[in-house]
Amino acid sequence: MKFMLMMNAPMGDGEWNMKSWKMDELKAHVGFMKAFNQELKRDGVLVVAEGLAMPNQARFVRASLKDNSPEITDGPFAETKEFLAGYWIVDVESPQQAYDIAARISLAPGAGGKPMHLRLEVREVMSAPPVEP
């Protein structure tokens, strides 16, 4: 069964304020992620892992009500408190195994090299065999 693990980071000046991290802190964070993804690959569970560009690069897009042309709004968006920093899709034996992986990611080091305890949203990917109704 496949699960998507979405790593949400707080907007603003929270622990995720990466731009104020020291060099060592940044290196430790990046190193942690690389090593962990390698481990997921070695374990034969990794489907995909991606980090996303900074939230201030995000755009809201919808079809304009006038002529359906793309209507683009620049970020960041004042109303959002958290943003999606990155996501994983893993193929595992059980929900618990996905939760365990999410909890490991949550330990990614941030400022001061301490675990950030970021919250991940875990959602099953629709891929199970259907049962004949």
Binding site: M1, E124, V125, M126, S127, A128, P129, P130, V131, P133
Partner: peptide, 10 residues
Amino acid sequence: RTSSTPERNY
């Protein structure tokens, strides 16, 4: 509760 797309649609 289902994690099958065709089943959910049904």
